[in-house]
Design a protein around this nucleic acid. Sequence first.
DNA 1: AATCAAACGTCCAACCATCGAACTAAGTCA
DNA 2: TGACTTAGTTCGATGGTTGGACGTTTGATT
Lengths: 398, 398
Amino acid sequence: MWYPCSMDYQRDHVPEWGSPAHLLRLVATGGANSRSSLVRLVKLAPSTVSARVEYLLEHRYLVESGNAVSQGGRRPKLLKIRDGGGLLLAVDFGASHARIATIDVAGRPQAVTELPWDLAQGPKRTVDWLIERCRELMDSPDLAGVPIRALGVGLPGPVENRGGSVVLPSRMPGWHGAAIRETLSERLEMPVVVENDANLMAVGEHLSAHPDVDHLLVVKMGTGIGCGVISAGRLHHGAMGAAGDISHVRVPAAGDTPCACGNTGCLETVASGAAIAQALQARGVEVHHPSDILRLVQEGHPLATGMVREASRSLGEVMATVVNFFNPSLLVVGGALAGAPPLLAGLRGVIYERCLPLATQSLEIEAASTGPNAGVIGAGLLALQQILSHPSTEETTR
Amino acid sequence: MWYPCSMDYQRDHVPEWGSPAHLLRLVATGGANSRSSLVRLVKLAPSTVSARVEYLLEHRYLVESGNAVSQGGRRPKLLKIRDGGGLLLAVDFGASHARIATIDVAGRPQAVTELPWDLAQGPKRTVDWLIERCRELMDSPDLAGVPIRALGVGLPGPVENRGGSVVLPSRMPGWHGAAIRETLSERLEMPVVVENDANLMAVGEHLSAHPDVDHLLVVKMGTGIGCGVISAGRLHHGAMGAAGDISHVRVPAAGDTPCACGNTGCLETVASGAAIAQALQARGVEVHHPSDILRLVQEGHPLATGMVREASRSLGEVMATVVNFFNPSLLVVGGALAGAPPLLAGLRGVIYERCLPLATQSLEIEAASTGPNAGVIGAGLLALQQILSHPSTEETTR
DNA sequence: AATCAAACGTCCAACCATCGAACTAAGTCA
DNA sequence: TGACTTAGTTCGATGGTTGGACGTTTGATT
């Protein structure tokens, strides 16, 4: 007989199970170190796994490195990430800085630099600047002979059209409709992915720390507020690529404070790093960057601590609604402010108070495991995912 | 060379494209009436489409019925839904009633009855009662010779475990952990799916009215408030199958009103049919069912209208947050109260006022096209989807 | 020491969905 | 009547996946 293609409204179907990217990740994260352990994990035929490992060996992602100890039979050939087997370029643009890094296929940052850059310069000059930085990095002696496989770029605004172009960004004037992916890809001659920064954090946390979690939210608390959404193991973009934008939800604590969006009472006006910094400066405290707020809180500055606590409560109210609605297994908090203990505590408190038991009984709330590099790690891993899923786009340079 | 299984973090990949279920739906909804028109729509090889149509003919879903007019060449053989070619049983349990219907493969209700039934009787007696009703229906002379292919059941509470069992329902005491799917399936000897009622509405609206919309929310305003979520063309269940439960989100208008959930200020206490009915009764207005509220509003009853308008505003505030977060293309309002014009108007007003332009510019807000049968239609179509995707589970009885 | 069983990995025939091209069928149009 | 168009089927070819046979390497058993 005949049976139709698998489909399911019901089952939460994990994407790309057993794909080369999946296998590579399992080896990279230490979940498996041989073909047979991979077979046990992904439950595919040994021949299938072998063929894919073959592919990864051929393309220099993996190497065989001797044998492991016997388990009562023939010793497994050890599989390892190949040293110098290729890196990903990753750039995470913030409000005033760009974090540039090389990421290995295991998602480990190799060389990280942070440079000042103002996105208000517009897409053209930003692309030029970025290409120059990438070229510099690739020409550096450390990377001699190491292939650069792809570039991942994170932007603090909504990105649409399969990661190609920016749509109506509130924080990036002059960027609407900028289709920077193609330009970058053509001029750098490598595959490029472009994504929203919070989405990249979500991908990074998902792939590198919680690959088994299917429903995952990552809140980025930096200059602005963003949220990356992973549903059924996939990034949820929404209709316009704007999903996760909770900056302009109305919260009581914001009262009638006007917001840049034209409305009043937005979450952003009380809970974003920019808002807290502004409020602190109005009270005479020297603050230039969200990380200064974190430092103040860690030093026990009472005003800063109070403001962060207040922010966490407003954020918590919004996230309580979102958690009830989305019912995630995990809520990760990242961004510059994530390290402030009162933030996480306040958030936990409000969410556990306001959410249904059913929604919270399976919910974990934690800080991002990848710290300030979360964005670039996500960018690198998403780019890696891309080239392993669509090898046609790969034209390894150098 | 070799390319890996398709996967994508980025692309919104439509599930089951070109599957028999998809083809059947295209014929059922009038989108196609011949093999060649199907080929044009789904863009698969003619041979592939032919094989699948063959399958649907063999299994008596479709029939060929003569020829259509020529388009300048050979006339296409007309494909039609087969009359008497099999029906789905569908049951939608509400607070005090159960709506039982037979649904044809096009999603059209054939025979609909509503019977009083109290779910507080518990799962066992409900299953017994339901099986009796199903047997009665199948033995009725109208259905002589018509195969009943599957059963879909909707329940007003969270359903987990691939539609198998109920989890911590607030409105269904004694139901926690009830795994009614297997029992029903074994005793009725047919495939059974069980789902949350709002999720079923979402499936019904998605499949029968908006198959091309990938990101879709359906709010059910009945005795309670529920929301079905479709992300990337798939039903989003969340970690515990509780996704979409916005009943207990705090809204300002609810003040400190205590809620059955133990918290205060829940949306449910101001916006649910039950709450409005109770408030009206407290003012001496005779109301027994949410549909009575609708009637009062349509008659211009000022108190009822005011309350519905107030409810719509509270719901709107919650949905504004959800729309910003989820960025759907479409928000459908269903349930007993959906027909009240002030509800839709109020909801639209608040959402367009409170949401980002980016989130609303691609957003449509409308009433459910399927009216009171939305639940049973969704139940039937989900059951159909199930048996066409997993023919192994099918053991057509009668 | 010889044997056996277990574990690891490879090779290969078979399978199955899908595709594309060739082919039949049945019409239109000049 | 012949050329062309559209509809639908048949039939290899393709390509990814599988399961099993096989070779290899080891520890455990006798």
